[in-house]
Amino acid sequence: MASDRSITNETGKLADNVYRAVLGDILSCRLPGGSVIQERKLAAALGVSRSPMRDALNRLEGEGMLVRLTERLLTVRVITLQDYLHSLDLRALVEPQAAALATPRITDEEIGRLDTLLTTLENTQEPTAEQHWTFDDALHGTLAERSGNPFLARTIHEMRRYTKIFERQTVPMRLSAGLVDHRKLVTALTARDADKVKAAMAEHIRKVRKRTLAGL
């Protein structure tokens, strides 16, 4: 997207790396919802000065990942059940369409890579959360990117931030449950059948909703 296009100098890159590091901590719940951001401490931990740290925090605040409770108190956004369901509703609206658009555009290599990752997961007795999310990111991320519409991709990307934080924080990990849905998706992609891909994605999101609610 346009905002990522024109970072041409080192300071910008540094701020960008800091941004990604802090975002990574939020997404993986190393910085859980509600945590107070301690700018100095965080900057020290990453070994950077406070200026790129401020840049990164302001950006995350603009994106809604951080919430300013008072003038001085910046905290990690808490993803409530309602936020989660709202985000998932939006994904249900957008992601099947994006996946259908992506079906003719995704490359054979990309499908091959997804298939390999999924096969590994299927053959692993107890996959770790990291393994699960690596595949989940790859699948949903690739389909979003290949929709060819950067706004569609960004929406999915942002909605997945919220649903992922919520699922990581609250759902006891029964990671194998999603494998069947994912296999259906990859099979339909391999067949380049856009209608089936669309239906499989819609069904997948419906089931995720059900599973999460059942797990609460």
């Binding site: 346009a2 905002s3 024109s6 401020r54 302001n58 950006r59 605040e61 603009g62």
Partner: peptide
């Protein structure tokens, strides 16, 4: 920086 987050400036 806030405007950047909102997409008005890059």
């Amino acid at each position: 920086q806030r405007l950047e987050g909102e997409g008005l400036v890059v």
